[in-house]
Nucleic acid binder design. Structure first.
Lengths: 97, 97
DNA sequence: TTCTCATATAGACATATTTATATTTGTCTA
DNA sequence: TAGACAAATATAAATATGTCTATATGAGAA
């Protein structure tokens, strides 16, 4: 089982803008311009946040012509949170319908 | 359902010392002196980290004479991670025996 | 009350983080 | 190839964080 740097990952998650970006990307892949349109923040700042998320493998990217599309790496997120939940003896409730 | 400040909570979790403290406290309650003995860090620094953890309700404290004992607030942690897991559509694997 | 132990608070300092503006790189199209 | 557009990188400023030493507070013991 792969080893994760939990400090790095929690740091990446510890920012409102990055939480929002992850939330957007968890629904569909998006390019930087599209992501930017949801924020007051400048494009270089959003790019910077994307690099931080990419740096701990929470998101992935692919180029399509001029655009670069980002998406959540769901398998990594599942894995990381699985590790944390077991390590901290967390009981996660089943969601009500 | 109670509202949590996830930025604050992830910030609190995004530090190696605090992760270690939580790990220790998840096994048994401890006072500051005992916690300190497991670290190279100074007592005021450990106290500072405890304040940060307490500030987002991840731990609780009780005084017993000269000592102050700290413990994990497991119900809060379960609740927070439950929220995150649902919000981010995370699938947590069942632990193998 | 005075001493001592346990813990918290204050202040200072170095480093890290967030954000912006300016610029560069990469890719398509005319 | 030149121009336009998408995105990344460089640099700098403001703010936040982690850590220390020194000091204060709080509680039991003498």
């Amino acid at each position: 089982m792969r080893k994760y740097d939990l400090v790095k990952i929690f740091k990446a998650l510890a920012d409102h803008t990055r939480q929002e970006i992850l939330s957007l990307l968890s629904k569909e892949e998006m390019n930087v311009t599209d992501i930017c349109s949801g924020f007051k923040t400048s494009q270089p700042t959003i790019s910077h946040h994307l690099q931080i998320l990419r740096n701990c493998d929470l998101i992935d990217q692919r180029r399509d012509g001029k655009n670069i599309y980002y998406c959540v790496r769901q398998e990594i997120i599942n894995d990381v949170f699985g590790t944390v939940v077991r390590k901290m003896r967390i009981k996660v409730e089943i969601r009500k319908k």
